[in-house]
Simulated assay, not measured.
Amino acid sequence: MTQEHGLIPDHSEGKGRPEPADDFEVLLVTGMSGAGRSRAADSVEDMGWYVVDNLPPKLLIPLVDMMTSSGSKVHKLAAVIDVRSRSYFDDLAAVLSHLDDLGVKYRILFLDADDEVLITRFESVRRPHPLQHGRRLVDGIHEERELLAHLKERADVVIDTTRLSIHQLSTKLYDALLGTGPTTVSVHIFSFGFKYGVPLDADFVADMRFLPNPFWVPELRDLTGMNAAVSDYVLNSPGAQEFLESYTPAILTAIRGYSREDKHFVTIAIGCTGGQHRSVAMSEELAKRLRNHGLSVTVSARELHRHRS
């Protein structure tokens, strides 16, 4: 595609674009209409990709330019492309060639399904196929399949959704893009104080009030569980290690099940009376143990803003 067509920006004569970051990647989500592109976009967004839907292929280059500019924090761009005509396909071929020239890493995800299933899906939502144009539904499907034949051959990942539920499709996507198993589950642990209310958004709630309270130790009262002295006191208290050694494998068992059932975000709440000492120390230690199993874990403390300065 030549410059005068407006597709490829001019970066000649010292006006060069910035080099893409080593971890910058473009994912092109395409395939047959009705095969699950919208669901795939939702799943990919959950994985941390910046998703742009219904993007004309020729707009991908300026979007990549913006994402690779200095200061951009977006390193994963997913573009959902609906190839509705031969001109769209020609534009996409030129874009892919240019991404190769720029050294931008990209993958093509192609979603497919049997004609009979696509017909059933379109009839269930009572919407015309984008290439139907007043003809029979099957005519639009056949035209689209012909248009996409070469793109499917070029795809890095092809998923047939004929017999997949939306949850099974999501699991397939996680497997294809991130790998299998519990490492696809992101865990957030936060400490809280029961005196300020039990959280409603937790998948698990653990009560640390069975441990001795550092609040009653004068030299620890004004500290928090982030302090080494408090943490040592809590973790060396009777029952602390026994709890962690039992609770950690229980959480891991649940996370393995969640990964199979298309649940990829887990929230664990660890509580004590005021949310300052025991719950904070135990949250940090549980996070450390889960990370040792390869999990992605973040930690926060709901009540630490209440701590006296």
Rank of each mutant, 00 (worst) to 15 (best):
S170L: 01
S170M: 08
K172M: 10
K172D: 07
L173S: 02
L173M: 07
L173P: 01
Y174M: 07
Y174R: 10
Y174I: 07
D175R: 04
D175E: 15
A176N: 06
L177E: 09
L178T: 03
G179R: 01
G179T: 10
G179N: 08
G179C: 11
T180D: 15
G181A: 08
T183Q: 13
T183H: 14
T183S: 14
V185H: 04
V185C: 12
S186W: 05
S186V: 10
S186H: 13
S186R: 15
V187Q: 08
V187L: 13
V187S: 13
H188T: 14
H188E: 15
I189T: 04
I189H: 04
F190T: 05
F190C: 05
F190R: 08
F190V: 06
S191D: 14
S191A: 08
S191H: 07
F192L: 12
F192R: 07
F192G: 07
F192I: 13
F192E: 10
G193K: 14
G193P: 12
F194K: 11
F194I: 13
F194R: 09
F194Y: 15
F194M: 12
K195L: 12
K195M: 11
G197A: 08
G197V: 11
G197C: 09
V198G: 01
V198H: 08
P199R: 15
P199H: 13
L200G: 15
L200Q: 13
L200I: 14
D201H: 13
A202D: 06
A202P: 08
D203G: 10
D203P: 05
V205P: 04
V205E: 14
A206D: 03
D207I: 09
D207H: 09
D207F: 14
D207Y: 10
D207C: 12
M208V: 07
M208R: 06
R209K: 11
F210H: 09
F210Y: 09
P212H: 05
P212T: 10
N213V: 05
N213G: 06
N213L: 09
N213T: 09
P214S: 04
P214I: 02
P214A: 05
F215W: 12
W216T: 10
W216L: 10
V217S: 01
V217R: 11
P218C: 11
P218G: 08
E219G: 03
L220K: 02
L220C: 04
L220F: 00
R221C: 06
D222T: 08
L223H: 00
L223W: 00
L223F: 00
T224W: 05
T224L: 06
T224C: 02
G225L: 02
G225Q: 03
G225P: 02
G225V: 05
M226I: 13
M226W: 01
N227L: 03
N227D: 15
N227Y: 00
A228Q: 11
A228D: 15
A229Y: 03
V230P: 00
V230H: 00
S231C: 01
S231F: 06
S231R: 10
S231A: 15
D232Y: 04
V234K: 03
V234H: 00
V234N: 00
V234T: 02
L235K: 01
L235A: 02
L235H: 01
